[in-house]
């Protein structure tokens, strides 16, 4: 049996909000350590890897491994019915037909209970070996989101160029071009405002702006995003959860 209680529904609300536009069907794998998901978008360009460790829950138990096949749009409809500050408990039997979601208001005696039918989802799984990266950028997630949104107004591609202590986001469109350069910066008082660049080799990679604009839907989850890049390899964008992560692997664009 699975029983996982979040102190606040807001965490799962944000996670589902971040994923639902990229992937329609997901298997949520529940083990004693927590809940994990691997899902790939229909175009097979973007892979989502989610880990909500048991430590992200107020209470968590899962006696046997359970797979919950969930339709994200349906899950999102139910999740939206709960308030962000409600306690949320996920309950499923050992061989479940449904996932139960219980929202409890902390101040009033109000309990809302929903049941979501499960689906059999035949999903293929990609093996992601330990990847080596040439550059790692830690930066404020809100700033990264703004850059992705702004650059998408110009072109459907966004170029990321990293040299020594700066990252340049460059967009070349039909009617014009634009770029934003950010440099390493340490804010000792507000560490979440800092930009850290770790570079082994200079980077020049191009990504689909559409996918980046799906990834930045994770912005409410974490104040910082970590971007890991390697020449002609998928990039990794990571948002930390209180205990766990939401990662996106995005295939680049390049000439064959």
């Amino acid at each position: 049996m699975l029983e996982g209680k979040f102190d606040e529904a807001s965490l799962l609300k944000k996670v589902i909000d971040a994923m639902k536009d990229s992937v329609k069907l997901c298997n949520f794998n529940c083990t004693e350590n927590g809940i994990s998901v691997q899902a790939i978008d229909d175009s097979r360009v973007l892979l989502i890897s989610l880990l909500i460790e048991a430590g992200s829950f107020e209470d968590y138990r899962c006696d046997r491994n359970i797979v919950l096949g969930l339709e994200m749009e349906s899950l999102n409809k139910i999740i939206k019915n709960g308030n962000a500050s409600d306690m949320l408990t996920l309950v499923a039997e050992d061989s479940p037909d449904a996932l139960n979601l219980i929202f409890e208001d902390k101040r009033r005696d109000r309990i809302a209970e929903y049941s979501l039918k499960l689906m059999d989802i035949d999903q293929d799984f990609l093996k992601i070996e330990d990847m080596k990266f040439d550059a790692v950028v830690n930066m404020p997630s809100a700033e990264f989101a703004k850059i992705c949104r702004d650059m998408k107004t110009l072109s459907e591609s966004l170029q990321i160029i990293i040299t020594k202590d700066s990252v340049k986001f460059n967009s070349e469109g039909d009617f014009g071009s634009g770029s934003v350069v950010i440099k390493s910066f340490t804010d000792l008082e507000k560490t979440e405002e800092s930009v850290r660049i770790t570079l082994e080799k200079p980077i020049n990679l191009t990504f689909g702006a559409k996918y980046l604009n799906d990834i930045i839907k994770s912005t409410p989850l974490a104040s910082q995003v970590t971007i890991k890049l390697c020449d002609k390899q998928p990039a990794l964008f990571e948002y930390q959860l209180p205990s766990g992560y939401l990662r996106f692997y995005l295939a680049p664009k390049f000439e064959d």
Binding site: S43, R44, L126, K127, S157, G208, P234, A251, K253, E255
Partner: peptide, 14 residues
Amino acid sequence: MSKQQTLGSFFSSA
């Protein structure tokens, strides 16, 4: 002209 790659070119199915 750069082409959008897919993840299947980099990762194998498990």
